[in-house]
Structures are given as structure tokens and as C-alpha cells.
Computed example of a mutant assay.
Amino acid sequence: MPGKNLDFGRFGARGVKGSDAVARKLDELAGGIATPVTARRGWIARLHYLTRSGKSRQAAQDAGLTVTDRTLKAWLEGKRRPSKASLERIDAAYRAVRRQNVARHLLKRLNREGRGTRVEIHPLNQSQVARPHQRVIEYRTMNVRRWDKIVGSWAAGDYRGLDDAWTTDVLPDLGSQWGAYEYVTNVGFAA
């Protein structure tokens, strides 16, 4: 049933793909620098995070932040300010490196030695759908024990893999109506 919602929202339903909601929640759990990258404090903090070790610097280069040491030094000393495109690359590199650094710890917390984590799935919003087209979809909870593919795909930035893992490994545990939860308003869990 998943993947059959090719015309999602045709009758006014609102929501996001469940895997996108999971990715947002994982980003939230990963935490990080709260100051926006557009503020001087924000991009300086991100640059310090990306340049604190050789491994971090290499990961930042792999994530797309390719600037000379001279430019980086000028940015860190406040002599020059990164362009808008550079700020976007700094933020993208920061998020990619942060995900890689946090993934192993987050995976351990979510798997909890095989006990898993309780997940709340809030169904899509049908308030704008005409009564004859509405279907009964209820709030669901379940225990997810297999987080390896989900967290691995999230850490690698592979949203297609994350979607596949969510729709083929997790949703079928909901029973016969699991396709009705491909789009949701929110997915909540704590680690």
C-alpha cells in the first residue's frame, strides 16, 4: 500500500511523509547550535565545530565545505565574512558532520539493547477533506526495535533509503492499514 499515494492532498488532506517527520525528529534529537548561521555567532560556532580536529576538517571537506586555510583563518578572526552561498555550505557541512558524529550514540539510545523505542504516529490532517472522502485514521503507538537502517540512512543524508526503511521495515508492524500512515502530521519519539 505505501507508495500508492501518488496524488496525496488531492481532496485536501495535509501532512508530510512519515520518513520526513522521522528525519526532523532525529535532527531535533541530534541537537546542535541554536544560533542561526546568518548571525556571526552562529557561523563562527559552526566553523569551530568543523575545524576542531583534522577528522572534523576532512569530514567538512567531504560534506562540501572546500575553502582555503587562508580564507578559513580570515573568517575565524573576523576579518572577512562568508558570502551567502558559503554560509549555506557551512550550515550544510555542519549538519552532515553533526549527524555522523551523533549517529552511533543516537542509535544506541534508540535500540536500547533490543528493547526499542516507543513511537507515536499522528495521522494526517483531514479537516479540509469533504466528509464522503474522509477515512477513519487513528492515532497509533508502536515500539520500534530496528533503528539501524533508519539512523544509518539519516546520518548519510540518504532520504530515499530512510523512506524505504520506514515504509518497509517499520510501518508494516501497524497491521493491515499501514499504508494509511505513509503521510502523517507528526511522528514523535524520545531517546
Rank of each mutant, 00 (worst) to 15 (best):
L162I: 02
V97E: 13
K149G: 11
R57L: 15
L87Y: 01
E138S: 05
S86A: 09
K73V: 02
W166G: 01
S176K: 07
R95S: 12
D69F: 00
R98M: 15
Q177N: 10
H105C: 06
G161V: 07
T66A: 12
L87C: 04
G116R: 09
T167N: 10
A74M: 07
M142S: 03
L72H: 07
A156R: 09
V67G: 04
W75A: 05
Q61D: 14
T68I: 06
L106D: 07
V151R: 04
W75K: 01
Y183W: 10
D158V: 00
P132N: 08
R118Y: 03
V119P: 06
G78Q: 04
T141Q: 15
N186L: 13
V170M: 15
G157A: 10
R104Q: 15
V119G: 04
G64C: 08
G64K: 07
K108L: 15
R131D: 14
V144H: 06
D91L: 10
W75P: 04
V136A: 12
R109T: 02
V136R: 12
Y183N: 03
A60Y: 14
P82D: 06
K73M: 11
A103P: 08
R131V: 05
V67D: 11
V136S: 10
E113K: 00
E138D: 08
W75F: 11
P132T: 01
R81S: 15
W75T: 00
G114M: 11
I90K: 03
S56V: 05
K79D: 15
L171F: 06
L171G: 02
G78T: 01
G161H: 09
W75C: 04
M142K: 02
T71I: 06
K108H: 15
W166M: 11
D148C: 01
N101A: 13
A63I: 05
D164H: 02
D158C: 01
V144I: 11
Q58G: 03
R98F: 07
Q61Y: 11
N111Q: 13
D173L: 05
V102C: 12
A63N: 08
A130D: 11
K79N: 14
T66C: 09
Y139K: 10
E113I: 00
A165S: 12
V129M: 14
S127P: 04
Y94W: 06
A165T: 02
L72D: 13
S176V: 12
E113W: 00
V136D: 13
N186F: 14
L87S: 02
S176T: 06
Y159R: 11
R112Q: 14
G78H: 05
K79P: 05
G78W: 05
V119A: 04
L124H: 03
G175A: 11
R115K: 10
P123W: 14
S56C: 11
K84D: 15
K149H: 11
V144G: 08
L76V: 01
T185K: 07
L72E: 15
R81I: 07
A103L: 10
R140Y: 08
S153T: 02
G157I: 06
V184A: 02
A74N: 10
G175K: 09
T168R: 13
V170W: 08
P82V: 01
G114S: 10
R104G: 15
R160T: 09
G116L: 11
L76N: 05
V170Q: 08
D158K: 00
